[in-house]
Write a protein that binds this DNA or RNA. Structure first.
Length: 291
DNA sequence: AGCCAGGTCTGCG
DNA sequence: CGCAGACATGGC
């Protein structure tokens, strides 16, 4: 491990009764840039390379500050209270028990926007690969003793990419959406901040107007990037879980329809309440156990 | 080979 | 509106 500037390494202690499972939170599919190596979780947050590891109630960090780690992990939120708020039945109860210490991270709006455009109709490992490629090809170099890292690309960098380099990122048909959405943000750098300050439905409408952002991506962006904890994103897994445990699937339904997803989304939000997004993440995390 | 993946877009009726 | 197909790519 490289020598660090004083003040950029240290550890924090979890408050009594405020659990956090670092590895689970970083690897459950809400963030795509973390890798475990030699017992440390390594990732790029903003323009910093972070190294994190946990031993019990102690989280050690390098490359950033205690304050930023606490904010990123949202340690200010009362997790047991959130769990209790959504713990309405045996199914969600089991899901909560399946992923104790799972916390929703406070991630960057722009990075989440692009990440969930990449996330359409593909697998988590490949999303990670696409994000890594985009960063390596279009992000800023961050030299470090542990290797060369890359920050997530700016809107401008993705708005005017070298075509051949973009092809190397293997985004498939998503490349056009990424570039067009990046262009929109580059032309109006305050757009995402503006949307984040709007009431939920208006923020959602704004996101839906971006190329490559449909209902599911919009909800994930609202939850993971805008930290709107009452949205209930519906993907294939949540659809299956909800049909299996909560809502009878309509008699004639063959293909997944947007109408049906809307029904699930509305139900989830009303049933689980103001922390429905957390409930969704518990269910998603426990998906293999629930199907 | 064929099906599926943290879906979205387009073109119909 | 609501529905069917197309769509790039890679893992199983």
């Amino acid at each position: 491990m490289a020598a660090q500037i004083p003040g950029t390494m240290g550890f924090i202690r979890l408050r009594e009764g405020q659990p956090c499972d670092l590895g689970l939170s970083l690897s459950c599919g809400q963030a795509f840039r973390w890798e475990e190596r030699d017992g440390w979780w390594e990732g790029v947050v903003g323009r910093e390379v972070w190294h994190l590891r946990q031993e019990g109630d102690r989280i050690e960090y390098r490359g950033t500050t205690a304050r930023r780690v606490r904010d990123y992990l949202a340690l200010d939120l009362d997790l047991p209270a959130i769990q209790a708020a959504v713990d309405r039945d045996p199914v969600i109860h089991g899901a909560i028990a399946f992923c104790p210490g799972l916390r929703l991270l406070r991630q960057d709006r722009w990075e989440i926007l692009i990440s969930f455009i990449c996330a359409t109709n593909t697998h988590i490992p490949r999303i990670r690969q696409m994000i890594a490629s985009l960063s390596r090809c279009f992000g800023g170099r961050i030299p470090s003793a542990t290797g060369t890292w890359y920050s997530f690309p700016s809107p401008g960098a993705l708005a005017a990419p070298c075509r051949e380099t973009l092809d190397e990122c293997r985004l498939g048909y998503r490349d056009r959406y990424i570039q067009e959405t990046a262009t929109r943000i580059a032309e109006d750098p305050r757009l995402l901040r503006y949307l984040a300050a709007l009431p939920l439905e208006e923020a959602r409408e704004g996101l839906l107007s971006l190329p490559g952002v449909g209902p599911k991506a919009a909800d994930c962006i609202l939850l993971f990037g805008f930290h709107r904890y009452d949205v209930f994103p519906v993907d294939v897994w949540i659809r299956r879980i909800m049909h299996r445990h909560y809502l009878a699937s309509p008699p004639g339904m063959k293909m997944p329809s947007e109408k049906e997803d809307r029904r699930i989304r509305t139900f989830g939000r009303e049933y689980f309440g103001e922390w429905a997004g957390y409930a969704q993440e518990f269910l998603f995390c426990a998906r293999t156990d629930l199907l």
